[in-house]
Every structure is written in C-alpha cells, then in structure tokens.
Design a protein around this nucleic acid. Structure first.
Lengths: 153, 153
DNA sequence: GGTGAAAGAACTAGAGG
DNA sequence: CCTCTAGTTCTTTCACC
C-alpha cells in the first residue's frame, strides 16, 4: 500500500465505474500500470468488490431500523447460528457482532412501519436464543463511501 | 422500476465494474437498451453511485465501534450541527440519526483501541451538546451489498 | 515496477423497424 | 424495445527499459 495504491483505491471508492484510463490519468501513471495495480489490490483482498449504491426507497425499503439483540447462551454455536439466520433474512442489510451489553446489532429495512413491526414480531422473536431485543428507528443514514486511510498504525 | 430495471440494479449491486455488454447479456436485452436504462436509473436517483468496497485493515481501520450519542437540547440546530461535525471526522464512517433513547449512532473506526479511545475522549467528548455516549466494539461486520427489492409497498 | 504500442473488445450515439 | 452500424475509446497483453 504505497501512495499509488492509495490513490487508485481513493478513485475507485469515489467512482468505481470510471475507466481504468481515467484513473491512470488522475493518479499519474500509464494505464497498464494502473490496471496491474488494481488487479493486485483485488488479488490481495484490499479491494473486496464494487457495488452500486441504490436508493433504499427504490428497493421498497423506506423504513430502516437498528435492532440490538441479546442471545443466550453466548456460545459460538449460538452466535454463529443466529448470525447466519439474521444474514439470511431479506429485511436484514447488515449484521454487527458486538462486544458489550448487546451481542448483535442488526440493520433492517422494510416497506413501512407495519411490515417492520411484523418482521420483528413474526420473524425475529421466533428465535429461542433471543432473550431481549430493542428496536430504534433510523431517521437518517449518512454513509461515507470513501473513508480515507488513517495515518499508519 | 419494472423487472428489467430491477435486474440491471441487481447486477450492478453484485459487481459494479462488469461491462454494460455483460449486464445486457445477463438480463437479456441489447447493450444499447441496457445502457439507456442504466442512464435513466442514475438520472432518477435510483443509482446513487458506484463504490469500491475496501478492506478496513488496508485503510488502517482495524478497530471499529458503534457509538450511541445523546445530545441536548434536541433542537434542529443542535442536531444538524452535531451531524455535520460527526460526518466531518475522519474516523467516522457513518452517522445514523435515530428515534428513541439515542439521538445518534455513529460508526467509527481507528487503527487500534488506543486511538479509538483517544478519538472518543479528545474529539467526541469535546462537544458541549453531548450529554452522554456509550461505545460498543464491533467484532464482526457482515454487510449485504446487494439487498433485494422487497415486495411492493 | 514501469512504459508504450497494437490488437481486440467495449462504449456510445444515431437511424430505423 | 430491438437491431445494426460506425466512430471513438478502453482494455489487455507483451516486448522492452
């Protein structure tokens, strides 16, 4: 991860669909060099993928919430099973495995409040390992899609 | 948003860097049709952007946390000011404006626990409008980069 | 590592059904 | 919405530095 790699990564974070040629020009190297660097970044796992960011409402996901979940017993088996279960639900868009008083935070979205409620009551609370969960509605979600590298560890 | 639009969106969620030609083939239309659909989706704001997904450790962000924040007074001025402040911090990768007992949840990342702690103590707690905050470390973060459209509202 | 050139492929716009 | 076409641009490889 030298300066060149970082510059390429920054460009791909900003706009993953711009041409290799454009990126090469912006970072000041030949297109072939840029292409090879990008290929290596992908191979090394630095670049994990390229994804379109879609407006939630276009996916009928106008209502979003964060749900804090406690499960018991707190064994690997239970944790892995719940994680897989949650990740498999279509309403769930992200799963955080946490330290602290909550074991999981899951990011869910639904068409409206009714369907969100139905999801929580009918799907989530079905699970026997859940001993408690609290739901907080998200009014706004600002995501930074191009986080900068922090100064060296 | 007909079936064709959804299919194109799905492909771009899965891999935003595949060629228009490939997408056209997969969804079963001519490249020119696919290109025009994609252009319109972008114009209508359905597609908000294309971003590379980067491994956090490559950005020196090996430690992540969710921080629940309460601010007072809960006025628009204070909310907007804190939101802008938080979004501007390099350690912050997402800001959720919440309903419920927490006013904000911010997703932060740092090089290590020490720097995370320093960030919380030196940067965050500086703000006078914060009356309380609680930090939970993230052990794992599974993000679904291709959420499916939910059945019509 | 990086470069430059060249062949093949893809993009994009436009005319027409 | 599709096809076809044509001009332009991009990707990708490879011999060379």
């Amino acid at each position: 991860m030298d300066e060149l790699d970082s510059a390429i990564v920054r460009e791909l974070q900003r706009d993953a669909r711009q041409s290799n040629r454009d990126i090469a020009r912006k970072v000041g190297v030949a297109p072939s060099t840029c292409l090879e660097r990008t290929r290596l970044l992908r191979e090394r796992g630095v670049i994990r993928g390229y994804h379109a960011d879609i407006a939630p409402s276009a996916l009928n996901r106008g209502v979003q919430a964060l749900v804090s979940v406690q499960v018991r017993p707190l064994s690997r088996t239970v944790i892995d099973a719940f994680k897989a279960f949650a990740a498999g639900l279509p309403e769930v868009t992200a799963v955080f495995v946490m330290a602290g008083s909550d074991d999981f935070v899951i990011h869910v979205s639904a068409q409206d409040n009714d369907r969100l409620h139905a999801f929580l009551v009918d799907r989530l609370s079905q699970r026997k390992e859940i001993v408690d969960f609290r739901t907080s509605i998200i009014f706004q979600h600002l995501a930074k899609h191009d986080p900068a590298p922090l100064p060296g560890a």
